[in-house]
Nucleic acid binder design. Structure first.
Length: 483
RNA sequence: UCCUCCUUAGCUCAGUCGGUUAGAGCAUUUGACUGUUAAUCAAAGGGUCCUUGGUUCGAGCCCAAGAGGAGGAGCCA
């Protein structure tokens, strides 16, 4: 007989049939009731053992955390907390768990802090919260692939090891096989990278975008979905040294097509999770609601997690230009009462507090800000045709989410070779490093656009978790690469 | 990297003005009970009060330095 997953049993219970389940004991109450979870769902199956029919030594081993196989008859439950239960006739102890040891872990049946759970990343999968988070992380991932596949996008794998530092997106991790204590040196004392594995210095990628553009300018529409690495000493609840990013790129799209695509994608993800992982979502929504009760009124969220997802899918994102954003901020009472710590001036980047004001106070919904000043945006973003003199802007777009900040950053790309070369010079990027990128603008260049979605930030929004370390199985942050 | 806060039992936390033997709930163990739902009842075990140094007759509590963690900022996704 094959084991049946608990998710199947609970979805379509075949009452009166002999069934085998295997999983981990969450609780064993009254020497009679086993609460069994096998990871297929957040819900547990109640298994009832008649303790008079089993050996004491077997019952002793049914402890929290232990792995067991149970065979028995599926029947309607006499108790009120569940509809079906398993009347156990055979117990197999598959893996024991010593209660004294379990007591020191996150598996003991009680509430734990997220910090404590983080210290046991290898065991936190066993908890309701992280089981739900990682099932939903899968759902978000799968929804993204499904979304793009349905629209005829091709999934492209861009390199993880890269020789170009062109995007300047941040500090990079060096990849080398040289002996750090005794590297080969040039005559002038510098490290001789010709002797390194690739014959030149290489790093872990900070973005697959430039490579993605090459594919898009042949295959039409592509997306990447891979790990990304930033060696920045960022110690916040929104940053990781290793994270995952989705970067679609579409030939012939302009900035408006780009916004439509991003908005559709974000809505699709929310719908998918609501439709397919409702149990996990409800658990997380209730969990957040309980947590909110211990917070002061002004720090509570107005909508529940589920309501926030519904809100996103059923309302258009607010679209404004950077210049309009500056006007709104400067005309706000918040500004007039001097409640912003940072000055609001055309030409400087928006600070976190400004973005939060726009998203959380002014519009109360996701906001897309476009047409930023060229001075603080990347070299590859397309220069707008009708910029005021001295106020040159680029066709950039950032999508800001409540509680998260920047969820998506993208732009229409500079397709004009002469302008792009000008920008390279202005940003001190040597053209010879990017010859392969510039080539795309020589052989049938076309307008195109794309964006990057921070995968973990999306999972944060969908699960309601407030620390990015709690939505990735094994977080890598400064001074922390355990497991 | 900067600012603020935190570190007491396995976990979550209390610990008064610096004063005798540092407490509670949960968890664990033992026993009782047995249709429970974070089961209940009784008892027991469990402490480098983060580390080092200082002040003091006396420090969990005051001071200094360090370590670890959290929140916020910057950078960004």
């Amino acid at each position: 007989m094959k084991r049946v997953k608990i998710s199947e049993i609970l979805r379509e219970p075949k009452l009166g049939t002999e069934t085998i389940v295997k999983g981990w004991v969450r609780a064993f109450r009254s020497n009679r009731f086993i609460q069994l979870n096998d990871g297929s769902t957040i819900n547990t199956l109640q298994a009832v053992v008649d303790f008079e029919q089993f050996d004491e030594s077997v019952l002793k081993k049914i402890t929290t955390g232990a792995a067991v196989g149970l065979k028995g008859l599926l029947v309607e439950s006499q108790g009120s907390g569940q509809s079906v239960e398993l009347q156990v006739s055979e117990v197999e102890i598959i893996g024991e768990a010593n209660p004294d040891d379990v007591q020191k872990t996150v598996m003991q049946p009680k509430k734990h802090s997220l910090e404590f759970l983080r210290e046991q990343a290898h065991l936190r999968f066993r908890t309701n919260t992280f089981g739900a988070v990682f099932r939903i992380r899968h759902a978000v991932s799968f929804a993204i692939h499904e979304f793009f596949n349905q629209r005829g996008f091709y999934y492209i794998h861009t390199p993880i090891i890269t020789g170009s530092d062109a995007e300047g997106a941040g500090e990079m991790f060096r990849v080398t096989t040289l002996d750090p204590t005794n590297p080969p040196l040039n005559e002038d004392g510098s490290v001789n990278y010709k002797e390194d594995f690739f014959g030149k210095p290489v790093n872990l990628t900070v973005s697959g975008q430039l490579e993605g553009e090459l594919a898009a300018l042949a295959l039409g529409q592509i997306y990447t979905f891979g790990p990304t690495f930033r060696a920045e000493n960022s110690n916040t609840s929104r940053h990781l040294a290793e994270f995952w990013m989705i970067e679609p790129e579409v030939a012939f799209n302009d900035i408006h097509d780009n916004m439509d695509l991003a908005e559709d994608m974000l809505k699709y993800i929310c719908s998918y999770v609501m439709n397919h992982f409702a149990d996990d979502l409800k658990f997380l929504s209730d969990r957040e609601a309980t947590e909110q009760q211990s917070k002061p009124q002004n720090e509570r969220t107005e909508l529940s997690l589920i309501e926030r997802l519904q809100f996103v899918t059923s309302n258009d994102f607010k679209r404004i230009t950077y210049t309009e954003a500056i006007d709104i901020l400067r005309n706000s009472n918040h500004y007039k009462k001097k409640k912003f710590q940072y000055e609001v001036d055309w030409g400087t980047d928006l600070q976190s507090e400004h973005e939060r004001y726009l998203v959380e106070k002014e519009f109360k919904r996701p906001v897309i800000i476009t047409d930023y000043p060229a001075s603080f945006k990347a070299f590859y973003m397309r220069r707008n045709d009708h910029s005021e003199p001295g106020r040159e802007t680029v066709a950039a777009m950032d999508i800001l989410f409540p509680g998260i900040g920047e969820m998506v950053g993208g732009s229409q790309r500079e397709e004009r070779l002469d302008v792009l070369k000008e920008k390279c010079a202005a940003f001190h990027i040597p053209e010879e490093d990017l010859w392969w990128y510039l080539d795309t603008r020589r052989f049938g260049s076309v307008p195109h656009a794309g964006f990057g979605l921070g995968f973990e930030r999306m999972v944060m929004f969908v699960t309601g978790m407030s620390n990015i370390r709690d939505v990735i199985p094994f977080p890598r942050t400064p001074q922390n690469a355990e497991f």
